[in-house]
């Protein structure tokens, strides 16, 4: 899959229970898709199933996993992968994305995105996990760059080289998280523009954008719990100039404001998107 095959573009928002009702009853023409975490829907009925059906009736669905980080030493259990495969078919997901991180070890789940060492051994593991998942799901896989707050061991590669090796050797797609690039650049003294310029534009099928928080010591945390900062909008603009019309997701997972405030962010993103990419909708 390449960008000219994308059937979804424009601005989307994460389908979260806290905003589901105003989202599903909104008239927001700037919104072109929603994204959800399959872990919140697999093996689940009730309210979540109802929300899913209502969302599917209005928008294309993109899927983004939280628990199959590609740095996991152990392969994912086949039972869950089979459930995931059925779910992705049900929502007609064009690809499935996951993080270049680890979230579990020895069967214990951390429910967070933990960084991998930037080493060739970690590349090998990630490539293996990506191929396994793609083969099992029979669907393209997109890999997301994460934010990290500490270096896991002595790096053999820089982050961009690490990403590139994983992407090239696994032939995976890229979900480019612009806020994560910004957060990492500030926390580790890196050049966000340089990182962005090194990412393979032709592999990018989606962009994530979010707000972050700043701790008293100055560390930026990718919380998805605040409005997107102007500096991140600027980086998004650069990213869109490079990659073109790919779907851009506004991530908001906590500290939800009034829906009007979120809608205003969607409208602002949409204006930026149409200005930069020239995209129009009927």
């Amino acid at each position: 899959m390449r960008q000219n095959e994308l059937t979804v573009h424009g601005i989307g928002i994460g389908l979260r229970q806290a905003i589901a009702e105003p989202l599903l009853t909104s008239t927001l023409p700037e919104l072109q898709f929603v994204e959800l975490h399959p872990e919140n829907y697999v093996q689940r009925g009730g309210r979540f199933r109802v929300l899913l059906e209502r969302a599917r009736a209005r928008w294309p669905i993109l899927t983004h996993g939280l628990s199959l980080g590609f740095g996991a030493v152990e392969p994912a259990e086949p039972q869950y992968v089979a459930q995931l495969k059925r779910f992705l078919a049900e929502v007609n997901a064009p690809w499935h994305s996951e993080h270049l991180c680890f979230s579990s070890a020895d069967g214990v789940m951390l429910h967070d995105l933990l960084p991998l060492p930037f080493t060739r051994a970690a590349v090998r593991v990630a490539v293996e996990r990506i191929r396994e998942l793609r083969d099992a799901l029979e669907r393209p896989i997109a890999v997301e760059n994460i934010s990290y707050y500490a270096h896991a061991g002595t790096p053999e590669l820089d982050e961009a080289d690490f990403m590139l090796e994983v992407l090239e050797r696994s032939d995976a797609l890229l979900l480019l998280d612009v806020n994560n690039i910004y957060v990492n650049s500030k926390n580790h003294g890196l050049d966000a523009q340089r990182f962005l310029s090194r990412m393979p534009a032709e592999r990018v099928v989606q962009i994530h954008i979010a707000g972050h928080s700043v701790r008293p010591d100055g560390t930026l945390i990718d919380t998805h719990g605040a409005a997107v900062r102007d500096e991140v909008y600027a980086l998004l603009e650069d990213a869109l100039r490079r990659v073109g019309r790919v779907p851009v997701l506004l991530e908001r997972d906590q500290s939800f404001p009034d829906f009007a405030e979120l809608s205003a962010e969607v409208v602002r993103l949409h204006a930026l998107y149409t200005r930069v990419t020239g995209a129009t909708w009927p």
């Binding site: 951390l110 429910h111 967070d112 933990l114 707050y149 500490a150 270096h151 896991a152 061991g153 560390t219």
Partner: peptide, 19 residues
Amino acid sequence: ELGGSSQWLIYRELVRERL
């Protein structure tokens, strides 16, 4: 073993708070 950086404690805080 993780290099001694107290930044790792951020993860401890995030994981535990979320759960």
